[in-house]
Simulated assay, not measured.
Amino acid sequence: MKFKGKTFLVTGGAGGIGKGIVTALAKEGARVVFFDINEEKGKATEEEISKISECMFIKVNLMEKDDVVAGFQKVIDKYTTIHGLVNCAQASRNLPFMETTEKEFELAFGTGFWPTFHLMKLSYPHLKETQGSIVNFASGAGLKGMLTQTSYAAAKEAIRGISRVAANEWGPDNININIVCPIAASEGVAEWRQHNAEAYDQMVSAIPLRRLGDPEQDIGRVVSFLLSEDAKFMTGQTVMVDGGSVMLR
């Protein structure tokens, strides 16, 4: 129960990796607030997690800055402050480079980069007070330059860039910021597998540990560690939680 009495905000918490993070934090005693645009899944997750620890779902369209600001204010109105922020949400459309248009960039940056940027700024005064932590999500797609991932890779590398800048600027305030690059068995991957069984098998066989991560046990618990006092001397780091797919030098 290392997070007893602490409040964390997670984006994209209704399902997939985000839900895994919400679950992992709740099991450590945290109060967890999560944003998601899917109201049905959001309410169901809130009900499920509330059996473990205090949990609140707020419907937020991350593409709309005013909605992000209003959602964050609801968190502060109820809990006064926060002790950690996890920017997990991301949507994208994957197309070859020459077929990618500004619309794909608008989606990738609108759901990933811009809400991450805005929520970091909104959270700063509170995290300075609580000496809290931020975990942002990037991807091996950006590090490896994966095919058809133009807009997604760009948004994720932009998130890595601002995370490192903020880690340097906010270090004196004892706010640590780290980046996680995961591979996990999310609902989206499961759906993709149904239509791309051969590609899925090839992907898994290329992972040294020969499996995908579990959203809670593998990804959520690493995020929990990065938000904890045990990781307070880590900042600006990219942590690959991908079964060894990318081994940073």
Rank of each mutant, 00 (worst) to 15 (best):
P125A: 00
Y79S: 04
M56V: 15
A44N: 15
E99L: 13
L226A: 02
A167E: 04
G145P: 09
G142N: 10
K232C: 11
R210G: 11
E191S: 09
P182D: 01
M120C: 15
N87R: 12
E99K: 15
A199M: 14
A197G: 13
D218Y: 03
F8E: 12
F72N: 09
G110D: 08
I58Y: 00
W114T: 08
S139C: 03
E28L: 06
A231C: 06
Q149I: 06
A108K: 01
G188A: 01
A26M: 07
V86M: 08
R249M: 13
I159E: 04
G171M: 07
E54R: 03
S139G: 03
V180D: 05
E64G: 05
A138F: 12
E46F: 00
G112Q: 14
V135Q: 12
A185K: 15
Q194L: 14
A154R: 05
G161T: 11
R93Q: 13
G112V: 09
E47G: 08
N174Y: 13
T238G: 10
L119V: 04
V33H: 00
L9M: 09
L209Q: 15
Y124E: 15
R221W: 10
L212G: 03
V69H: 01
G213C: 05
G161N: 09
L25V: 03
G84Y: 08
A184W: 02
P96R: 14
Y79D: 08
K121M: 11
L25K: 01
L62M: 00
E106Q: 14
K78F: 00
Q237M: 12
W114H: 08
N168H: 14
C55Y: 01
Y200V: 01
M234R: 07
V239C: 10
L107P: 04
A166R: 09
G145M: 02
A154M: 05
G213L: 06
F233H: 14
G15C: 10
R31M: 14
G84F: 07
L25E: 06
S123Y: 00
L226T: 02
E216F: 06
I134R: 12
I52E: 07
V33A: 02
V222H: 02
F137C: 10
R193D: 05
I159L: 05
F34H: 03
Q149S: 15
C88I: 13
E47C: 07
T100Q: 11
L85N: 08
A155L: 05
L227H: 12
D218S: 02
Q237V: 11
V180S: 06
I21W: 14
V189S: 07
E191W: 07
F3N: 03
T100S: 12
F137E: 11
G145T: 04
F35M: 01
Y152W: 05
W170A: 02
L226E: 06
I58A: 00
G112E: 13
H126A: 04
D67C: 04
A70K: 11
D242T: 02
E157G: 13
T45D: 01
T150Q: 06
P208I: 04
F225I: 01
F8M: 10
V22P: 00
S92I: 07
T111H: 03
I162A: 02
S123K: 00
H118P: 13
